[in-house]
């Protein structure tokens, strides 16, 4: 190792004698320097973004404030492990799972399906590796149509499944005819799987992109979750039996359970 070497390298990177006092940094198309506005239509975060955020802080706080003046948080009688409430419902964000439990084996409804949903969310960005349509709602007009039709499809089939299975319960019909894991496990799981897979299959036959297939699957997931939650929350009364919301027996009001 020699010091001369080191000096030479430094001299190459930072030449001591240069007759240039300026450098060309960038070429731009357009009328002139960025006067008041960046090259890509940007605005100063201060005060614009800050103001938007202040509006959101005040608006959200005010909304919750006003609602809290009008509606009291519920407090029922002290907990009593010996007296079950009827119905006993999970919090609203889990009541969709509770509805699902009515239709199939607990391991399927309570474990397999929720695990599958979380896994689906976790792997989804690695399945769709294209960068097309980033930052555009539904990516394209076709994407928007796919979302719309899949939403409609799910909004028809899932309620139909819930109502049919409620009227002609697979669990009851097949009791003692097939083993439990068929009547309550395999069969309902297959029905759900078919409902979920049909839009994706139709799309992949029409040369859809991974993004478009994901839009279909995601839409089925979200719309189903909404439907199962609404059904569990509004349509289930005492004994977790199905009633019309305005015909609940014993004066039960689902909204009191929030």
């Amino acid at each position: 190792m020699s010091t001369t070497n080191l000096v030479n390298t430094t001299d190459e990177i930072f030449p001591k004698q240069t007759n240039k006092t300026y450098a060309l940094v960038e070429l731009m198309r357009g009328d002139g320097p960025m006067v008041g506005k960046g090259p890509d239509g940007s605005v100063f975060s201060f005060p614009v973004v800050l103001l938007i955020e202040i509006i959101l802080v005040l608006g959200v706080t005010l909304a919750v404030f006003l609602f809290s003046l009008l509606k009291q948080a519920p407090l029922e009688a002290i907990a009593n492990p010996l007296v079950t409430t009827d119905p006993a419902k999970a919090p609203w964000y889990f009541v969709g799972l509770q509805e699902l439990l009515e239709h199939m084996h607990p391991t399927v409804a309570g474990v397999l399906i929720p695990t599958a949903l979380v896994l689906f969310l976790a792997v989804l960005p690695y399945v769709d590796r294209s960068r097309d349509g980033v930052g555009v709602w539904f990516t394209s007009l076709r994407g928007r149509r796919i979302a719309g039709w899949t939403a409609l499809y799910t909004a028809v089939l899932m309620p139909a499944y819930i109502l049919l299975d409620n009227a002609f319960s697979l669990r009851e019909l097949l009791r003692n005819k097939t083993p439990e894991w068929v009547a309550q496990g395999l069969l309902p799981l297959a029905i759900i799987a078919v409902i979920v897979a049909v839009p994706a299959l139709v799309l992949s036959r029409r040369k859809a992109t991974p993004r478009e297939v994901l839009i279909a699957l995601f839409t089925v997931m979200i719309v189903s979750a909404v439907i199962f939650t609404l059904s569990g929350f509004f349509l289930r009364g005492p004994g977790f039996k199905m009633y019309l919301p305005w015909q609940m027996p014993n004066g039960y009001n689902p909204l009191n359970g929030l």
Binding site: P74, E76, I78, A79, T85, A88, K89, P91, G257
Partner: peptide, 12 residues
């Protein structure tokens, strides 16, 4: 620790 919370957590 009222009936609502007790049974919701039991179900959950």
């Amino acid at each position: 620790w009222d009936q609502l919370s007790y049974w919701a957590i039991t179900v959950g």
